[in-house]
Design a protein around this nucleic acid. Structure first.
Lengths: 291, 291
DNA sequence: CATAATACCTGACTAAAGTCAGCTATCATG
DNA sequence: CATGATAGCTGACTTTAGTCAGGTATTATG
């Protein structure tokens, strides 16, 4: 690795260390040691399993116990034994705990907002932050099924349409295309998958089924900041698995030669080119894969 | 500020917190508490004044004293009174301290290197990191005088030539241009200024003098990741101040209409357009400013 | 030149974080 | 169902960080 790259990385690390440290210490403003605040935030973020919190925060089991006891005494947290395993415990926020968590969230949001507000070139800065966050966290991007009408899905689909409009010579108007109705992409007929990075969607793919043995793959899109991590391949594998699960025998898809990376991906994944199978005005390449 | 922007910023903060935390805790691998390690690193980085270290690390004066005493006992640091003010003290690393500092540096470099090596799209990632680091640290960018033959200056000049080659329709070959010899941009004839962000150069400008009352401003360049922070304006103000200091009465410069942001900057800063004053093949606009 | 301010030091203290051995209750497994 | 592994708890402890009230020596200032 080039020394200059290392120097640049380390300059980045120094710059964010200051910010991150400030963010941490803002948690001290509510009369509670950092350790306890971090536990409240971990529970609020959905980590209810005690062992999970312990692993996430890197705490000793004794220390963890004591932090939970002190939070219980404060009335912010209740613990109960895990329904599946009486050795394990789950922690929950009480109402007061929820309020406390919200207060911490507001602190963080306010910090973020203040920082972004005085940043020139905020859109570029956010894109750069996305790229950094996704690069560092690329092993934690998870693929999950979602409703295509959910907010996260619609965010992806909007971005997909916008990108198509930019990249296709003809532009793209979703109303002129064969827009699958949402039901076709929901079980039992089909499915819709999202790639989620730390709670935010960074990619999607739809499986449009009709109830029969032939289904279509639609709406494959990856956030520009998340490209190059093999996410499209993972989404395609996941959508094939979902199709098999739905007893679908043949998959089809259409695409456009203005998206060469998509064509290359399909060819590499064993799709074979076939004749036009619809009259949609936008695609000029058609593929099929027998499962 | 949009809620989505805040969510994206906070995802970024979470992603880097993990990395940065790991970087911090890697300092613990050498049998010394974090506080002491941070002092060694601060001294190694050139912060010798005790008050300066204290301010930088945000330490209480008593704690600072104790940390220095413990490092002295370990044989890593010596302190002596400041030559200009016998109340103040300066800390220096002993040879053993230097070795220890190098060991810490190698740890950090190794971490950075490992992280960058397994990153796809490393050049893009580094550019994004630059943008983040410079945005967060834009108030700490300092302008300083440097030798145009120094490594930092040459890095900027190379980047400047590359950018000109890309942006001018005719391309750019520095050998065909009137390349000022370095002596003309060094005192007493001229000057060369660098904008430094945390030790790395992010912009430059040259003042090419002949010993007479007329001098030229040359080689104004800003790192793309540092644009939008008003750095060009600051560099131009600094170069004007340097010119006044050298008793120069009239400044001139030439530029090209393919660089509209430069033209706009000069006009806004009170430069007036004049007739061509040289036969350089590249410029098509010429400016003058009477100091 | 008296006085105030500054820079650092020392001692005495507290709070927070972290460690470790040993304990109980529960679960997994042959 | 004995045995070992696992999850969490408790008590006793250490280390690290941080605070605060004084103290000395030096410098700045009216």
């Amino acid at each position: 690795m080039m020394p200059e790259s290392i120097a640049r990385f380390r300059r980045f690390a120094r710059a964010v260390t200051a910010e991150v440290g400030a963010l941490d210490s803002s948690f001290l403003g509510r009369g509670r040691p950092l350790g306890a605040a971090r536990v409240v935030n971990a529970i609020g973020a959905g980590r209810t399993d005690v062992a999970e919190i312990r692993a996430y925060l890197g705490l000793d089991s004794g220390l963890m116990s004591r932090l939970l006891r002190s939070l219980e005494e404060e009335g912010l947290v209740t613990t109960e034994t895990h329904p599946d395993d009486a050795r394990r415990r789950v922690a929950r926020l009480t109402e007061a705990g929820q309020r406390e968590f919200s207060a911490y969230e507001e602190l963080s949001d306010a910090r973020a907002s203040a920082l972004l507000e005085r940043a020139p070139r905020a859109p570029e800065l956010l894109h750069a932050m996305d790229l950094v966050a996704l690069s560092l966290g690329r092993d934690r991007i998870a693929i999950e099924e979602a409703d295509p009408r959910s907010e996260a899905a619609r965010t992806c689909l909007e971005a997909y349409y916008t990108e198509l409009a930019r990249r296709l010579k003809t532009g793209f108007d979703v109303k002129l295309s064969r827009d699958p109705e949402a039901k076709a992409m929901v079980r039992p007929r089909g499915a819709f998958l999202l790639a989620m990075a730390d709670g935010l969607p960074v990619g999607c793919v739809g499986l449009k089924g009709s109830g029969g043995p032939v289904a279509e793959v639609k709406r494959l899109w990856i956030d520009p900041a998340a490209r190059g991590f093999g996410l499209a391949r993972r989404l395609m594998e996941a959508v094939e698995a979902a199709a098999r699960d739905l007893a679908i025998a043949v998959l089809r898809l259409d695409t456009n030669s203005a998206l060469p990376e998509a064509l290359a991906l399909y060819r590499k994944a064993g799709w074979v080119e076939i004749d036009r199978f619809n009259d949609d005005p936008y695609p000029d390449h058609f593929f099929e894969k027998v499962l």
